[in-house]
Nucleic acid binder design. Structure first.
Length: 949
RNA sequence: GGGUGAUUAGCUCAGCUGGUUAGAGCACCGCCCUUACAAGGCGGGGGUCAUAAGUUCGAAUCUUAUAUUACCCA
């Protein structure tokens, strides 16, 4: 093995091997007498399909790490495991990309024509559609690519039609003229969820509306004066004394020749503004509702581009809405009807794709009647059929589901599932799978011309079917039988409404079952300053750059190229140069995955800090080098393959027994954590075990057994020594092999690479294809019988001993290489026994020349002291240690101890504590006190000794 | 305005159903190129757990209020 861990040398190679060997695929059988797959539990996760033409971002990388870890864990546990891959056609987003390409050639999509345009999108998909799937492969994602799906595949399109037709036939889909969110740039309706409202600076215009009879006038305030052309009433509160007398009268609407009524409605807040509200039913959602209540005329004054249409006075026709606004204000001013203009902060709705200000606009659209679908979906979460992790997200879900509005599913774009509805020349609607089906069902012969609806379905309509459409529904398939309902949906909270809720509704409606039993909601990946990553902020990190590394100049260029606001480029460049002085080094996939995993605490965003990933790259290197050590010391030797059963004479040291015990505890902690979606705790346990226990202690201790040096107390005959070394070699290999399997779900590459070398030494036969890879090995199961409590206690003694010596050594700047003489006093029989069996290890790790017992009565030379329980470790000072410094050190420790004792005494002196606290707690405190007291006594004695000198 | 979460060492975060003098990584200080690893080893310093009150024998942990902050919804 190379001395330095180099992820590039291993990662891609292993992925290709795994994929080409079909290791990602579950087992399936069509037989009724099912064998393998029936006996096994199935485990399935559906990938949230990324945009087919998208690129992998940090959010994906995080999410995919979580999913792949779960998938690999379950696959190793022996579950029949499927991670279903696929991509989404992403209607508006994809169409916009291709439209921009065409625009750059100086053409519009209308020049190209619908069919040719769609062909172009398919071409684009072919060209760029594999980018994201290639990137997923770089992440090590063990998706079953043979089953890759696309939301506009034939099969999935069939599912979409089936669902649409069925919902329509049950009156759950209807077509209606409604006020929708209209995007005047994209020329399409969008759903409520696709509208982002943000506060922006604007104005409040106060306009005077004169009464028709000339008796008086009213002042209305508005943020959108141009809509006055569509006003069909002015409303006041029915109890408002100021205006009560005017209710029922009419107003002469300025700039037009229309008269409109003054109406009364509770909705009006008399405290707000002037207490009079202009009502424009065609261009405001609240006004629309009020218009319906009062049977007001609805006058649409906008074209699809949000310019003034022919319903308005000729003067304004054709003007853009903002030009019209200016003109209207000017005209009102001139007629003295503009009272005043105030600055005002207002919520401005913008399309999430186009950024254009959304207009409420009256059009014909298709809707899903949502209430009947929402009801069972709410129940499913209430009764626990679906569980959110963390649990509190269910509140958000309920909140939304209980206030849900009908879902506008039609979009006036070209890329997507065309609505399976046809119109005859009278405008009568026929819904069916295709024109032929429609004709035969309704007995329409060829003489009747049918025209298909031009609209396509909201992208989320097909996404909502994803959990079952990908498994072949509406066909009956073994995949569906085996994997549906799926186990867990892993997603960000941002699409709970867009996607999760809709999948639940559609899943229940069409399969009668929930689509998944758990929803794991993860946080957002932010930059190191806690800012959301976005192109316009120039703080985006590309996961692939973290894996491969990137030069500073390339990174700067990448972040500043093609910006919406080029003026930001300078600032971004500056910050980038500051944050990434030397660019980004190559960290490798495993380090990136580990960084995500260890930060995947539930319900918290991740601030992505370069320090962390660097640390975990170092962790990979640590694991790498530890493995090198193990291999160097075990390859070519007898490593006790088969364990104690085959090698009855094999001898295990304290360290061996200890690390085996700790391994069991670690296995338990990791599996418990993975079972509860605490990837952070799992990763943390792995990190600590590997570094702080296996490497820092166990490998060091093993050296004393494996080194050629001998020791009179343990050497004995050669056979004995060989048996000890065999025990240690066995343990080295056994623990490492287990550790690799434990770690594999999080860090697949490095574990596979090392495992290939280690497995033969651990006696794992690699003769059948499924045993050629760590991916398909069983996940380690904790064995509590192998936890040796006395070894844990004794090891703690050994560690305390070594730490005590090290502290003295370091405290007095004694060279690490200097071998010390250590005297021991006041030890128990157990201490003596422990010393005897572990002398070699102690000497090696504490770097000791010799260890001698002193009798109680023996003369003690000037020494620095450490304590292990009652036992005193004395390091003679002669020439090494300064008496004053030692006094100071002892005093400090005495102080410390006295503080501790005081707090314990206080606690135990408290009658209430002793009488009310549980017995074991009190006993523990008593024990602590007596330990501390004896320690204090010991320390004080040491200090006295020094004083008398 | 309503809802949800967060506030613990200089930074990024653990701390499970209340029971050690509150932990880790990075950063910091000192010593060390010890034959797995300087992407390393050994040792060390650093926090009145946002504030206030309450419950309790005992609170970082539970309750309430306040402050700050983030997100979601209107």
């Amino acid at each position: 093995m190379e001395k330095i861990y180099n992820p590039h040398a291993i990662e891609q190679r292993w992925y290709e091997t795994w994929e080409s060997n079909g290791y990602f695929s579950p087992e399936l059988t069509n037989d009724t007498a099912k064998t393998v797959s029936q006996k096994k539990d199935s485990y399935c996760i559906m990938i949230p399909p990324p945009n087919v033409t998208g690129r992998l971002h940090m959010g994906h990388a995080f999410q995919d790490t979580i999913m792949d870890t779960l998938i690999r864990y379950h696959r190793m546990k022996g579950d029949n495991t499927l991670w279903q891959p696929g991509t989404d056609h992403a209607g508006i987003a994809t169409q916009m990309v291709v439209e921009r390409l065409i625009n750059s050639e100086g053409k519009t999509r209308h020049d190209v024509g619908r069919d040719a345009f769609i062909d172009k999108i398919w071409d684009w998909k072919k060209e760029s559609g594999s980018t994201i799937t290639k990137q997923l492969r770089r992440m090590g994602a063990s998706l079953d690519w043979q089953r890759e799906r696309f939301t506009m595949d034939d099969g999935l399109s069939e599912a979409v039609k089936e669902v649409f037709v069925q919902l329509y036939e049950e009156d759950l889909i209807y077509r209606g003229k409604r006020l929708v969110n209209w995007d005047p740039v994209l020329h399409t309706a969008v759903s409520d969820l696709e509208v982002i409202s943000e506060e922006e600076n604007g104005h409040f215009w106060h306009m005077r509306y004169p009464l028709s009879d000339g008796s008086s006038s009213l002042i209305v305030a508005t943020t959108r004066p141009e809509t006055m052309l569509g006003d069909t009433a002015v409303a006041v509160h029915p109890e408002d004394e100021r205006y009560k007398s005017m209710i029922g009268k009419t107003i002469k609407l300025p700039l037009t020749d229309r008269e409109i009524p003054i109406i009364a409605d509770d909705y009006v807040d008399p405290e707000f503004g002037t207490g009079c509200v202009k009502i424009t039913p065609a261009h405001d959602f609240n006004d629309y509702e009020m218009g319906k209540r009062h049977d007001l005329a609805i006058i649409n004054i906008f074209t699809v581009d949000a310019a003034i249409n022919d319903n308005a006075p000729e003067k304004y026709q054709g003007m853009d809405r903002y030009a019209a606004r200016k003109a209207i204000i000017k005209d009102l001013q001139q007629s003295g009807l503009l009272e005043k203009i105030e600055d005002h902060r207002l919520m401005v709705p913008r399309g999430d794709r186009s950024g254009a200000v959304i207009e409420p606009y009256l059009t014909d659209q298709w809707y899903v009647k949502i209430a009947p679908l929402a009801e069972p979906a709410i129940k499913a979460v209430e009764n626990g059929d679906i569980r959110f992790v963390p649990d509190n997200w269910k509140n958000t879900y309920f909140e939304w589901m209980n206030n849900i509005e009908d879902w506008c599913i039609s979009r006036q774009i070209w890329w997507g599932h065309r609505i399976p509805a046809w119109y005859d020349e009278d405008g009568k609607i026929y819904v069916g799978h295709d024109e032929k089906a429609v004709r035969s069902k309704h007995q329409l012969d060829d003489s009747i011309k049918l025209r298909q609806d031009d609209d396509v379905l909201d992208t989320w309509f097909s996404s909502a079917l994803w959990p079952f459409s990908t498994l072949g529904w509406p066909e009956k398939t073994p995949e569906f039988d085996t994997f549906y309902p799926t186990n867990v949906l892993v997603t960000g909270f941002d699409i709970i409404f867009f996607w999760v809720a809709r999948m639940i509704m559609m899943g229940l409606k069409f399969t009668g079952k929930v689509p998944f039993t758990e929803v794991y909601v993860h946080g957002l990946v932010r930059d190191s300053h806690g800012q959301k990553m976005s192109k316009s902020k120039g703080n985006v990190l590309d996961p692939i750059d973290l894996i491969d590394g990137i030069e500073l100049e390339t990174l700067v260029e990448k972040r500043t190229k093609g910006m919406m606001q080029p003026q930001m480029a300078k600032k971004i460049e500056k910050v980038t140069r500051k944050d990434f002085k030397d660019g980004i080094p190559s960290f490798g996939t495993d380090a990136l995955r580990f960084t995500f995993a260890i930060q995947a605490t539930t319900g918290r965003d991740i601030k992505f800090d370069m320090g962390r990933i660097e640390g975990y790259r170092n962790f990979c290197n640590k694991l790498w080098n530890a493995s090198r050590y193990v291999l160097m010391n075990t390859e070519g030797h007898d490593c006790g393959i088969g364990g104690k059963e085959k090698h009855t004479d094999m001898i295990f040291s304290l360290a061996d027994k200890w690390i085996i015990s700790r391994l069991q505890e670690t296995k338990k902690q990791v599996t418990d954590s993975l079972n509860t979606y605490r990837l952070d705790l799992a990763a943390q346990a792995i990190y600590e075990f590997t570094w702080n226990e296996y490497c820092d202690w166990y490998l060091e201790l093993s050296k004393s057994v494996l080194s050629s040096e001998s020791d009179d107390s343990t050497s004995g005959e050669a056979g004995l020594r060989e048996a000890q070394q065999q025990g240690t070699r066995y343990t080295l290999v056994h623990v490492l092999e287990n550790l690799l399997r434990i770690t594999h779900p999080i860090m697949p590459y490095i574990t596979e690479e090392i495992w290939q070398r280690v497995a033969p030494l651990a006696g794992i036969k690699q003769d059948s294809s499924r045993q050629e890879t760590i991916m398909l090995q069983p996940y380690p199961v904790p064995d509590t019988n192998k936890i040796d409590q006395s070894a844990l206690v004794e090891m703690n003694w050994l560690q305390q001993f070594i730490l005590g010596v090290r502290q003295i050594r370091s405290g007095y700047d004694i060279k690490p290489g200097k071998l010390l003489t250590v005297l021991l006093q006041n030890g128990s029989a157990a201490d003596k026994e422990r010393l005897l069996t572990n002398k070699l290890m102690l000497k090696k790790l504490a770097r000791l020349e010799s260890i001698k017992w002193l009798e109680k009565t023996d003369e003690v030379p000037e020494s620095s002291t450490a304590l292990v329980g009652e036992m005193q470790i004395l390091i003679p000072m002669a020439g090494l240690i300064d008496i004053d410094a030692e006094r100071e050190r002892l005093n400090k420790e005495i102080d410390n101890n006295q503080g501790f004792i005081k707090s314990l005494e206080g606690k135990l002196a408290n009658e209430n504590f002793v009488s009310r606290a549980p017995e074991n707690v009190v006993a523990m405190e008593r024990q602590k006190l007596s330990d501390a007291q004896s320690k204090l006594k010991n320390l004080t004695e040491q200090l006295e000794k020094l004083k008398t000198l």
